[in-house]
């Protein structure tokens, strides 16, 4: 644990921001307050936080349909996110995008994405732009185990490696592509093995250990900044909820879920922080209380914000 207290507590705070944000969405979705559908990130917080804590505001990410965690970890504004998910005009996208299409270009968030495997080529392009402009900016492409089987992902890995582009492919392997378990959809056990096909490093980490993710992605980011090309980091994790809220999850058993919930990344990190003396239990309680307040404010903002005017329907189709 070589990091400063400030960085560690910030990571802990962000994990809690994601956890509480998603829990709040779970509650309000069940109550019928949120239109459309949502894919929650509960249980996977260590991946987004471990990875994004290696980046600066100048670096970029591409995200997925399960993107709230990535956006929060990259600095996304909770009020604007919450309002967007509630379909309000004050949201990040003025209510035009919703849960799967939130972006903040100023923070390098190039968008969540409704298409599985849609982000790979975009991340490759963002990394190409960084190289073209001769900056040392890095792009992280988050993608799931399902997306790892898409041609777009494999094509992106190939071109990024051939061109030594500054991109890090962070695979969130939560074991299921919707209902289909990994063993049915691919022959490999470790998605990171596929890196060898593109002559790039492939690393497997415990995706429920925020520090392990941070270390692995940190190395990959450094390598990318040095101009040595991409890395594939596979983070083994699990989603606590179904693919979407309302998914009955008949395809997996309670024992499996319980096993993973016992590996909850937040208490694990909490223990480390307290044991190492970087923070006291009271301090961490304080963090949670502050996050709770922040989320209450975000919810209040979202709920009290107006729905979009119908006159906005045709705005922003073109620049």
């Amino acid at each position: 644990m070589s990091h400063s207290k400030e960085i560690m507590v910030k990571m802990y705070t962000t994990m809690n921001r994601i956890r509480m944000f998603e829990s709040m969405l779970q509650e309000y979705f069940a109550a019928g307050k949120i239109p459309g559908f949502v894919h929650l990130y509960l249980g996977e917080e260590a991946v987004a936080v471990g990875a994004c804590s290696c980046l600066t505001d100048r670096d970029s990410i591409t995200s997925t349909h399960r993107g709230h965690g990535h956006l929060i970890a990259k600095g996304g504004d909770l009020k604007l996110m919450m309002a967007e998910i509630f379909g309000k005009s004050t949201g990040y996208c003025k209510g035009k995008g919703g849960s799967m299409h939130i972006a903040d270009f100023d923070l390098g968030i190039l968008g969540a994405n409704g298409i599985v495997g849609g982000g790979g080529p975009l991340a490759t392009g963002a990394a190409l732009a960084a190289k073209y402009k001769k900056t040392d900016d890095v792009t992280i492409c988050f993608f799931g185990d399902g997306a790892s089987n898409q041609g777009t992902t494999q094509e992106s890995l190939n071109m990024a490696s051939a061109w030594k582009l500054p991109v890090v492919f962070v695979n969130e392997n939560n074991g299921y592509g919707i209902s289909c378990p990994q063993c049915k959809s691919m022959a490999v056990t470790d998605i990171a093995d596929r890196a060898a096909a593109y002559d790039m490093p492939g690393v497997v980490v415990d995706g429920n250990d925020v520090l392990a993710v941070h270390e692995a992605v940190g190395e990959a980011v450094k390598r990318a900044r040095r101009g040595e090309g991409p890395t594939l980091v596979e983070c083994k994790t699990y989603r606590w909820r179904g693919h979407f809220e309302g998914d009955a999850c008949t395809y997996r058993c309670t024992e499996e879920l319980n096993e993973w919930m016992a590996k909850d990344p937040i208490p694990r990190f909490e223990e480390k922080l307290v044991e190492s003396g970087l923070a006291t239990a009271e301090e961490l309680e304080g963090v949670k209380a502050a996050v709770k307040k922040e989320l209450d404010a975000a919810l209040e903002f979202a709920q009290s914000s107006p729905l979009p005017e119908l006159s906005a329907l045709l705005d922003d189709v073109y620049a």
Binding site: S60, L110, G125, A126, A129, T152
Partner: peptide, 11 residues
């Protein structure tokens, strides 16, 4: 896609 990503990044 890389054209789109690069365009969104200012090129």
């Amino acid at each position: 896609g890389a054209a789109a990503g690069a365009a969104a990044s200012g090129l």
